[in-house]
Structure formats: C-alpha cells, structure tokens
Design a binder for these strands. Sequence first.
RNA 1: CGGGACGUGGCGCAGCCUGGUAGCGCAUCUGCUUUGGGAGCAGAGGGUCGGAGGUUCGAAUCCUCUCGUCCCGACCA
Length: 570
Amino acid sequence: MRASRLFMPTLKEDPSDAEAASHKLLVRGGFVRQFASGIYIFLPLGWRVIERVNRIIREEMDAIGALELSMPTIHTADVWQQTGRYYDIGGEMFRLKDRSGRDMVLAMTHEEVFTWLASRELRSYRELPQIWYQIQLKFRDETRPKGGVLRVREFLMKDSYSFDADAEGLEVSYAKHIQAYDRIFERTGLRFHRVDSDPGMMGGAQAHEYMAPSPAGEDRVAVCSSCGYAGNIELARSVARAPEGSVSEVLEEVPTPGQRTIRQVSEFLELPASSLIKSLLVVTGEERVLALVRGDQELHQRKLERHLQREVRPAHPEEVEEATGAEIGFIGPLGVDVRIVADESLAPTGPGGARAYVTGANKAHTHLLGVMLGRDVDPEYADLREAQEGDSCVECGSALTVEPTIEVGNIFKLGTKYSVALGATVLDEDGVEIPLVMGSYGIGPARIAAAAVEQSHDEKGIVWPKSIAPFDVHLVQVHATDEEQTRVAAHLYEALGEEGWQVLWDDRDERPGVKFKDAELIGCPVRVTVGRRAAEGVVEVEPRGGDQSRREVSVDELPEVVSELWRLAD
RNA sequence: CGGGACGUGGCGCAGCCUGGUAGCGCAUCUGCUUUGGGAGCAGAGGGUCGGAGGUUCGAAUCCUCUCGUCCCGACCA
C-alpha cells in the first residue's frame, strides 16, 4: 500500500478526551475515530489490525472444528422473553419496536439466537457435537463507556457456542476452546493469564477469563507466579497473612469518640488494622446480614452474594441503626439479632488462630476490646475477602500478586439453561429427548488490539506485535521526488511484496521528519529507510521495538535482513 | 444513577472571574525558499462561542433549563 493513497489521518497531539494510552495512540495514529460515546469508527489502519486479529481467530477456531456463520443483530424480543433475559436485563439492552409495534432488541450477545437455530435444526445426538461461531456486532448500552475502544456500546465479538449431548461432551468442547484460545492469544503476542472466573449467580458451571495485564484494565486478577494459579479477584482464593498485634482476651468497652473508620480506630487505640474486625451490614431481600472481615481486608460483595446465593446491597444508615442500635462506625457482631457471616481468615482455625480482636460495640462512640469469634459469638465462615497482594497461594503457598487486567476473552459452561428455555433438544441413542448441553465463548478483537497497544508502546508511539501490525514493513522513502530513491523504493516494495510481506510504502511528498514520526507512531515492526545512499544501493533498516539498532544494508541483502529482524521481533 | 470537569474555526487551547459582537498554535489554500527528525517567509480562507430561554442598551462572558463528552464511583448477560 502506498501511503499517498492511504487515508491515514495522524495527529500531533493527544485527543483531549483520551486517558488510556491505547485510546490516545489509536486516535493519534489514525486507527480509530469516535463517533459518539462508546461508538467508534475503524479507519483503514485500525480495520487492518482487526482483520489480522480476526484471521488468527478464524484459523484457530477452524482448527478445532468450529464452523463460521453469521447471525442477525436485530432480534425479536420473544426469544429473549423465553429465556427471561428480556426481563432480567435492564437498561443495558437496546430495545426498539418495528413499524408494526413488535418488540425487538439489538443483540447484546447471541445465546438466544444460536439456541433458537439449534432447536430448529438439530434433532439427533448423531449430529453432535457442533461448534458454531461468528464474528459479529454486539450492542450494550453501557452506563459508562470508557477507555477508548476498551469499553464501548457497539463492538465486534467472536462468539462461539458448543452443543453437546451431555456433560462429558461439553468438557471436550470446553477443552477445545481452551486450546484454541491459548493459541489465539499466544499468536497475538499478548501477555495474558487464563484465570478462574465467576460463572455468575446461576452457580455450578465453570468459567474462565483470558486477561491481559494492563494498568488500563478494569478487572483485577490474583496470580501465583510459582504454580500458575490465577483467579479473578471476584473469586480468587488465598491464604491471608497472619494478623499483627495482640488484644487482651478480656472483653472491655473503650470510648472511641468520633473514631469511625478502621484507620481512625487503629490509630486511636494504637493497634494494627489487622487486630480489628470490620463489621458491614448488608441487606438481601428482607433479611439483614452482618459481614465480618479483618480490618486490613476488603469485603468482596460478589463473594458474599455467592455464599448467600442472593444479591445484596449495603444497608442504609437508618437500617444500620435499626438493626444494631448504633451508627455506622460503631457496629459489631455482639448482641445483634441478625445472621452473621465472617471471613474464614477470622476463624479460630485461620492464620491468626483463636485470638481476640476489636469490634464496634453497637453503642455510640464505643468499641469493644477482646472479642473472640467462637467464644463470644459464633458466626458462619466463608471466603468473603478480596485476595490481596502479599496473601499466599492456596495451591502452593507462594506469594500472590494482584494486577489490573483487560478481559480479552471468556469461556463459560452454560449447561442447559438456554436449551431448556428454548426447547433445543435432540433424541439420544435410546430415543429419549434430551436438552443440548451448551457452552459459550467470547473474544473481543478490538480489546486485543487495545490491550496490545497498552502492553507495547513507548513515548513515540505504538510498537505492534508482529502478528497484528497493520503492515509488516514500513518503507520510508525520504524524498518523494528523488528519482533514484523512487526507483529503489519501488524495487524493494515489489521484492518484499513477492516474499509475502505486507508493505506500507511512504511515498508522500512530506518532509522526512513527518514520515519518521508517523512511522514511529503507527508502529509497524520493521522500518526500511530509502534515503541519501539509495543511489549506491544502500538503505537503512531497523526494528520498531527491541534493542536492535539501525543498520545500513545493500538493497540486495535487504529481504534477508528483514526476515532476520522478523524472527527476532516480539 | 451519584460525584467532578469540560463544550470557543478541522485539532489542541486562551478569553469568561471584573459583559462592550473572538484570539493563539497546529492544520488548510496560494507563492517563493527549503528537504535525514513534525520547515521558513509572505499572503489568504475558515468560528457567532453546544442548544434554548432569560437578565442587560449590549452576553462567549451573568442566570435557568437542556444536549453532548470525559474522569471517579455504582453497574457490567
């Protein structure tokens, strides 16, 4: 591709509304433009990146026997009503009516329609397994689009669905997806973790997420570098550190005027936060539940919900006073008539052993010293706390790290929820009608691109992984009007193209500095510069990333040098 | 949905507090010069200040409403 013919609107300055590195660079580099909040245009360069990602996805999906097809993005409401999601999902779903007043929705995902198709077309266990996929638009009216292309309202997703006769079959389809996904993310050049993830409130089924570490990420994962255990913070288990300090085992009220937060109480009583217990009242339906975690830990609401099997919300201040007789900041587990759930690290069998802590006294401006769980109050125990950096791995005992990540893919064992709701059944070998056992698997190509930029850029611009760069080689002709340079550049453009490289030939009549800056911003893996020594048959070549420096080579040996640099790249 | 900020030529910004009908840099167009790191000089075009209403002799500037965008939080099948 000649740059003079390419629509490649680069910018010198960061767009004012961009925060994330990938957002700034993808806009500046002429890859994307924002159309509205959370709705993006992919320009030629950006689309080339997406297409390269998609190609990798297709190759690996095809390799596990998945079949590509294309589903509608405008759905009738009825299938969504049959699975109940029409009612369960709130404002996140775009809803509309057709001209005759029929309720329609824009596709947020495609379980319903894939299952609808399966219900019509699959009849026998002999036709199984089936894995169908598409690379198709999804629409979600996010409450808060952010991070450029990272969290948007309309986006491309590769989604696949597996249909099996039984749980064993699902295991196989799921394992195939793990294989394909591992390959896909390796090939895109991302650093990533496959982590245990929350299968949702329905419970039971298994799920994993593919997470690319990045400060721009919205999810956090706990990772053990030693044994490879990795889990989304929403469910990651860990062994808490032992609490510090000690508290007399004699129950004693102490006045703590105005000391409401853990930090205030900790400083006031001169005790470490891990010697305190944080008491949090939540409401679930009509029930009140008091959750206890150690002062140096955080309650994870999803974990509590999973334990209670219900959604919860923090109690309002009036509800706290009604249930405990005290204000927020002074409540505790003793003498309250509600269900009490404590984090397992507080159990007498936990890392602190049977020991005393400080809690609120359920009395204004008063705390209680010497509270022992098991002796003074007997709560149920569950894993309620967020895994923290410095906790130990439950598998091997090594230290866990916690890092922010971008979710680039996920895989779910759905079971029969959708097949039962939509009547997707086949006959088994005994002629008995059985519901299909399904899995659902997603990948966000644009998130892969954005995560790659997040993970691989410098102050000059993007450093694309070689597999998804918009072009392999950026051929910079320093002077567009120099005939010798044009001759050499044209020759190289052709020669490299014949060897299969995707080449961007910058033949624009721009000043050299402009071309160099653009080349660095756009970030193709190898740059070839045709400049002052072109007449002698000498050009320069250098990789965009890595520590290889610029070198001069003869035109004849250039293709070989490009291949060499390519092998060293990433 | 709660909190915060911002909306001024294509892009990035100043002007607003202390009202007097708009300015800078980049980009664009023309000419000349220049050509290995986002060129120089000269000239030109382009905005009515997100929108509506109000206050005022007069509003980019003050007030009200509204729309849009971003950030933090909540939310995220």
